[in-house]
Design a protein around this nucleic acid. Structure first.
Lengths: 352, 352
DNA sequence: CTGAAAGCGCTTACAG
DNA sequence: CTGAAAGCGCTTACAG
């Protein structure tokens, strides 16, 4: 931990050139004599020089850092998004600085934005779910930020800001269609917290699809969980209390679906014979639940990748146009979920 | 996205003072007249000034950034460690820059170190598991780094580098003791990959404890998994093939334990009556497995917190002593795991 | 193809 | 208590 950091100046002296020639080599500029280029590069390797990105950032006015603000990292979704962001960022030459928010609705977020601006990040990736009105102020706030912002994750409803999200309504639709195809006549729902936009969208997709089926009474009771397995477990009890004849349950995530499976076992209900169960997320464990869980997969890694690709484009545009810089128009990318059929749900019946 | 960034100079002009007076206010120096202080601070608020950390870092020679290198973030362990690191870092005024490594044994890691040095991080938190010989070169490499390094996570064996880890041997011991107390007479093991130091330590603790029991034949067969539930499922089959009379299984993580539960159901084995199962990690879902999983909890969030606290201390020491800077002696912190008894294992028998 | 000068936005001694 | 000067390590025009 004791090595003295070597600067461009020492490299220049050792090579017998000026510092900006070294700088040219560092940045792979074409206008350097081949011999000079090689000599400098050799010295760089010899002395183990590596450029000071702080200094570079200061002169260039960009840090090559992306600020990522994410909702925890203990949940499946955020983790996937972050994985996509990190790998794509590395790919494109960005570092990321990570801030974790644990209560998406109430945590003060101005402080972290300040911090990111202070650090001169080139762009901000906002991977916080829309809960209550926690995104209402965003368009206004974003305008006063000196960098592009991209919303990423579940929300795809923000028309006024660049965003990449998942089509949550289709998630509900896929689940309901699958349940109907398996012969369900009364489908209960365990939704996520109603303040969560994603939860409401999934519910809406579920509700629309069941209504369109024309089957009488197929839309069963709805109870609100908190995404935890424990709430899914309690949820099944409530559902059965409200409507003992339900033969299928859509849980708005896999954890709650796990709770449902657990409760069903405890009650002696057979899954899927007595009760079909569908979750959302496609967590790795789902394949090994008992029985293996049918679920709806969200392409969240992709969402992370697309968000980085998109913000990079925004950053470049901003850098090109001289002041006054104009961002490109808000863009939205909505990725499609995919049904994964396993054994917790009755298989589609053959058409007669 | 268009606001012009305001600098210390403009604040100084607006306040009618010099830039270093503004700097003093920014850094809460005592030697400023109260009226001046207030006036400057008001202007700062008015114009929405926030300091450029790149410039500050350049002059101060420290970035207030911690470089975190972690093994993925799709697994439970790394996620917990990262959560601890992030919260403690925020608490202590550090930002973190995150690099993810997906293959801990083979991925080239020099590039990410270079990158961190370039970014002038104040310290490096290395949260990569010890697999094969991937840590052998570390002590040598660390010496040539200009910043402190702390190893964090499972490994606590590195005497030559500061580190905070979990006592993995005790994990194996706790599991084996619990199984013995429940009356197990033949205990199989599904271990993690043998190239993983953590897996070997857990196995050693398990083996020692069983041997010390003096019970003949209590040490059952060992099969090697890859941490996945799928490998746990296959593992139980192999274990039974090798020794049909096993009445307990220790799985080296909860995912593999889940696979064991799955396979046991499929085979019609009752858990825990026919087979006691114990895992490691205490993942959130474990409570809702069927039956709820007995496991060994690792204080990984704490490990992350302690790592940040420790490296902060190292950073401060390094900053105080003028060159030649001497790091404090390598320190090691080993945190203790904790058994969580649920229903997948037979309860301890009463002493006669 | 290469270098002398200026500057990015701060902080650190050094005067007063 | 406050300011003029220098410098952190680079890059960006500008000359030649």
């Amino acid at each position: 931990m004791t090595r003295q950091r070597v600067t461009i100046r020492e490299v220049a002296e050792a090579a017998g050139v000026s510092t900006q020639t070294v700088s040219r080599v560092l940045n792979n500029r074409p206008d350097v004599a081949p011999e000079t280029f090689d000599r400098v590069q050799q010295i760089i390797a010899e002395v183990g020089y590596s450029p000071n990105m702080l200094a570079r950032g200061l002169t260039q006015g960009r840090s090559h850092v992306l600020g990522v603000v994410a909702f925890g990292v203990e949940y499946f979704g955020p983790t996937r998004v972050l994985t996509g962001i990190e790998s794509q960022a590395a790919e494109m030459g960005y570092s990321i600085t990570l801030n974790l928010i644990h209560r998406p609705e109430t945590d003060d977020v101005n402080g972290v934005l300040e911090g990111l601006v202070s650090r001169q990040v080139d762009g901000v990736l906002w991977a916080i779910p829309q809960v209550g009105r926690n995104l209402d102020w965003w368009p206004e706030r974003a305008k006063r930020l000196p960098t592009p912002v991209v919303l990423v994750g579940g929300m795809a409803g923000q028309e006024s800001l660049p965003s990449v999200g998942i089509d949550n309504r289709t998630i509900g639709r896929l689940a309901a269609e699958h349940l109907l195809a398996g012969g369900a006549r009364r489908v209960g729902l365990i939704t996520g917290p109603s303040r969560w936009w994603e939860a409401r969208e999934r519910e809406a997709g579920w509700r629309e699809t069941l209504a369109q089926s024309g089957l009488d009474g197929v839309t069963g009771p709805v109870v609100e969980g908190d995404w935890s397995a424990t709430s899914g477990e309690a949820g099944l009890h409530q559902l059965l209390a409200a409507s003992p004849d339900i033969d299928a349950v859509f849980a708005s995530n896999d954890q709650m679906a796990l709770g449902v499976l657990h409760a069903a076992h405890a009650l002696g209900l057979r899954v899927p014979e007595d009760l079909s169960v569908v979750g959302v997320d496609d967590i790795a464990e789902g394949k090994h639940f008992w029985p293996p869980l049918t679920t709806v997969h969200q392409p969240l890694i992709d969402a992370g990748i697309q968000a980085v690709t998109g913000i990079d484009e925004d950053i470049r545009r901003l850098a090109q146009r001289r002041r006054p810089a104009e961002p490109r128009a808000p863009w939205t990318m909505r990725l499609q979920p995919r049904l994964i059929v396993r054994e917790s749900s009755r298989p589609p019946r053959q058409a007669i």
